[in-house]
């Protein structure tokens, strides 16, 4: 049923604009992830899912929830059931909620796309029994949920993501410093932003996380109109964060501006590489399966 909901008559994935029409972020995440996982079973990536791997004796410190009580009933011994995808890691989602994320050339904004992506990642990780946390920021930390695997925590995170609204300016420095103060365990950190900042500033903000042992992936969300703008006449473009306006010609926007965007992406990618982080560019016109797939590849690489 879920699969059929995510596919049209030709078997293609439903566009993010359609998904964004669903009011509940949890429903969106479940729809995307369940469909994604079913698709994954048919793919060469089988094994990333929750596949049984082995039993091992329960030792002090293990989570009692993972004790296989059926085996205990039969053998009177406690065993822990382990799965292939179970690494007991945790994922921290850092969502940029600055005003620039509110841009969208169509009905879907970058922020809504990022909300859905973060929701899906949280849901997927929760399915993997990873501890999931979230930090929503602009030029300061606006919302923070510490990583946890407790029941109901996923719902709390999805609610926090859903309630966030884009506003104010972007500043990676202060929120990331605050984040480092709260995080102690190693894990994965997914930063979802449009990264309209100086690559060097980004490097300075991310590098300490890498030094701290975090596996960082930078998910850069861009609108198709940012990658290839289409204007037919001289236009005054107004910065959504600063209000600064610059008049541009169609000639400039169609020839020179895409080159500048590509150069900026390459600069970000280079800076990310220097910080030991991965960099993924996401087009809001693309289905969410692709970033999820890239995330799993990133997660597998980390293992």
């Amino acid at each position: 049923m879920v699969t059929s909901a995510r596919q049209d008559a030709h078997g293609r994935l439903i566009k993010p604009e359609v998904l964004s029409g669903l009011a509940n972020l949890e429903l969106i995440a479940r729809s995307v992830v369940e469909g994604f996982l079913i698709g994954l079973h048919r793919s060469p990536f089988f094994g990333f899912s929750q596949e049984f791997a082995e039993y091992r004796p329960y030792v002090e410190g293990d989570d009692p929830r993972f004790v296989d009580w059926n085996v205990y009933a039969r053998t009177d011994r406690t065993y822990i059931k382990r799965f292939l995808g179970d690494t007991n890691s945790h994922l921290m989602l850092l969502l940029d909620a600055s005003a620039s994320m509110g841009y969208g050339s169509g009905s879907l904004t970058k922020f809504r796309y990022a909300q859905m992506l973060a929701g899906c990642l949280a849901y997927l990780s929760s399915k993997q029994h990873d501890a999931v946390g979230a930090l929503i920021f602009d030029d300061a930390v606006r919302e923070y949920r510490a990583p946890s695997t407790r029941s109901g925590h996923l719902h709390s995170i999805l609610h926090a993501l859903d309630a966030a609204q884009p506003a104010r300016r972007t500043d990676l420095g202060a929120p990331f410093r605050r984040f480092r103060e709260h995080i102690s365990r190693r894990g994965m950190v997914a930063v979802i932003s449009d990264f309209y900042c100086d690559p060097e500033d980004m490097l300075q903000a991310v590098k300490p996380l890498a030094f701290q042992g975090q596996d960082v992936v930078l998910m850069q969300v861009l609108d198709p109109a940012e990658l290839q703008p289409q204007i037919s006449s001289s236009t005054l473009l107004e910065d959504m964060e600063t209000g600064e306006a610059i008049e541009v010609s169609p000639d400039f926007m169609q020839r020179e501006y895409p080159e500048r965007v590509r150069a900026h992406i390459e600069a970000l990618r280079g800076a990310a590489a220097r910080a030991g982080a991965d960099h993924i560019v996401m087009n809001t016109a693309a289905p969410l399966d692709e970033p999820l797939r890239q995330y799993l590849m990133f997660r597998q690489k980390r293992r």
Binding site: L237, E238, H264
Partner: peptide, 24 residues
């Protein structure tokens, strides 16, 4: 008169476009 549209950031629309505007 130019149409006013929002953009995420003008950080990539810097000196060259301003010069073009001045020329116009």
């Amino acid at each position: 008169k130019p149409e006013r549209l929002p953009i995420s950031s003008v950080m990539l629309l810097t000196q060259s476009e301003k010069r073009l505007h001045v020329q116009k």
